[in-house]
Amino acid sequence: MARKIRVLVAKAGLDGHDRGAKVVASAMRDAGFEVIYTGLHQTPEMIVQAAVQEDVDAVALSILSGAHMTLFPRVLELMREKGIGDVLLTGGGIIPKADMTALRQMGVGELFGPGTSTTAIIEYIRGAAPGGAASRSAKAGSAR
């Protein structure tokens, strides 16, 4: 039986807008994902630590505070440092198109704006992060 896709839904920085993160988390859970929600006001360090500990296939970061151009790159950098650079980093929020493009070029996955259906997000994660954890558990196992 296929292992369930594990996703860390994370809220970074001071932003308290959690309606979207909670709706997406609920939809992922109903779609059969295992969802871990960090809660609010996490630093990039806390998020990446949780991603490592929970052995997730994807990190879905929600940012509506305008701080996406500092927080996404920082989370990505830390993920690479901690050896989980192969885990998908995706997310959503109030992010202008140009910034989405710039973040994609840095290695962040698809980012989703207002009006996105949860189905689109779920389909994307299914496609972009399958088996990520399975291939990584061997690596992680030897490192521990």
């Binding site: 920085g13 001071l14 932003d15 505070s65 701080a67 927080l71």
Partner: peptide
């Protein structure tokens, strides 16, 4: 801004980027 709303000065680590 968010740091002010959360009771942080601009030079606090949590204010980074906001």
């Amino acid at each position: 801004d968010m740091p002010t709303l959360m009771g942080y000065d601009a030079d606090h680590a949590m204010a980074f980027g906001e």
